[in-house]
Structures are given as structure tokens and as C-alpha cells.
């Protein structure tokens, strides 16, 4: 089922961040939401995920089971990469699969190291594997490749494209290159922070 948003509006205090926004995110396809910082991309994504309620408008078609990469890694610091991924997996995902994914993304030597001891780029990759392996067919990615160097970024994007194939992916980014390499549909948002009373 496609995810569709109709006439979404959202304000924070006097600032209107999103106004009358409508879009469709096709089932099983990747949609990149592009736009400059502060244009409301993350707000839109949070409304899609059900973490923020819109002031007006509707969001339809978001399934119960979903996964995400937030702007922050949001990892359980004292646990290993394997344990962090296991946290969100169901019984159908065995330990071998978790290790295989983490190894495929270049974390084979750090499977059981507490994530608090990992570098920023390594932690980002743990968060990505966690989102990819979580049960559910919808993936919300908020600047997921932030903090990765160019060489690693290409490698990680390739991993996400391969492993999330067939899932509905909503990628928020302000990086044209990331959106181009990820492919799929494109939605552009413009900066629209205006006082609500104007």
C-alpha cells in the first residue's frame, strides 16, 4: 500500500514549518525527500513515522511495523553491535544473519565491542543494519549517511540499496549526490518557515 499525505501542515510556536504539503510514497520503491536545512524534511518524516501529529492534514498507509535511522544513532551504548541489532529483530532473524550483515558493512572486527567504543562512522553503520534487519517493509532514513567519508558512503549506500530492495524507503537528505546514487523517486521541499499569523 502506498503512503499518502494530504494537505499536511505543521507549526512550532509561531513558525510554520510545513504548509499544505501533499505527496505519495510508492510501496516497494525508494523516495528521496530533498531540500535545504530547515525546510521541514525531518518534521515530515516524523509525521510519517507517527512521532509528531500534524496540525492539519492526513497521513495514510503507514504500516504498523516500520524501522528507521534517526539523525542521532540512538544506540544502547553499553551493548555490542550484535546486541543492538538483536534488540529490534524478531525470532525469524538468527544470530548468523545479524553477524553476516554487520560483516558485510565492514564491522566484522567489532561485532562484540560495546558501541560506546566505536567511531561515529561505525555507530552509524550499526544503526543502518538495525533498521535494515528490523521486521517490516517500510524504512525511514533521516540523513542516514551523515558522518561517513565519501568512500565509505558509496559502499554503505550500495549496502542499503541491495538489502532494502523491495521495501518502501523514505530517505531524507540535503545531499544531491546521496539522492542520485540511491535513485528512486524524488520530492523536493523548499524552505518555508513563516510566522503563522502572517
Amino acid at each position: 500500500m502506498d503512503i499518502s499525505v494530504q494537505n499536511l501542515s505543521k507549526s512550532f510556536g509561531p513558525k510554520r514549518v510545513i504548509e499544505n504539503f501533499s505527496a505519495v510514497f510508492r510501496e516497494g520503491e525508494t523516495t528521496c525527500v530533498m531540500g535545504p536545512s530547515g525546510c521541514g524534511k525531518t518534521t515530515l518524516l516524523f509525521m510519517l513515522m507517527g512521532l509528531i501529529a500534524p496540525d492539519m492534514g492526513t497521513v495514510e498507509g503507514v504500516p504498523e511495523r516500520k524501522s528507521a535511522v534517526f539523525q542521532e544513532d540512538r544506540l544502547c551504548e553499553s551493548f555490542s553491535a550484535v546486541a543492538n541489532v538483536r534488540l529490534v529483530c524478531d525470532k525469524n532473524t538468527d544470530e548468523h544473519t545479524i553477524r553476516e550483515h554487520l560483516t558485510a558493512i565492514g564491522l566484522g572486527d567489532s561485532l562484540f565491542v560495546p558501541v560506546s567504543d566505536l567511531s561515529g562512522g561505525m555507530r552509524r553503520r550499526v544503526a543502518l543494519v538495525r533498521a535494515v534487519l528490523a521486521p517490516g517493509e517500510t524504512l525511514f532514513l533521516d540523513e542516514p549517511f551523515k558522518g561517513l567519508d565519501d568512500k565509505l558512503k558509496g559502499f554503505v549506500i550500495s549496502y542499503v540499496k541491495t538489502r532494502a530492495k523491495g521495501k518502501t524507503v523514505v530517505l531524507v537528505t540535503h545531499d544531491e549526490d546521496e539522492a542520485r546514487v540511491m535513485g528512486g523517486n524524488m520530492i523536493r521541499m523548499e524552505r518555508r518557515i513563516t510566522p503563522t499569523d502572517s
Partner: peptide, 15 residues
């Protein structure tokens, strides 16, 4: 933020 993440992923109360 961690609790929000757990809620989004549908992590059980025990976990």
C-alpha cells in the same frame, strides 16, 4: 530518544 526508537521499532517491554 531511546524510548522513542524502541517504540517505533515495536520493541517488547521485556527487551
Amino acid at each position: 530518544k531511546l524510548l522513542e526508537m524502541a517504540g517505533l521499532f515495536g520493541v517488547s517491554r521485556v527487551r
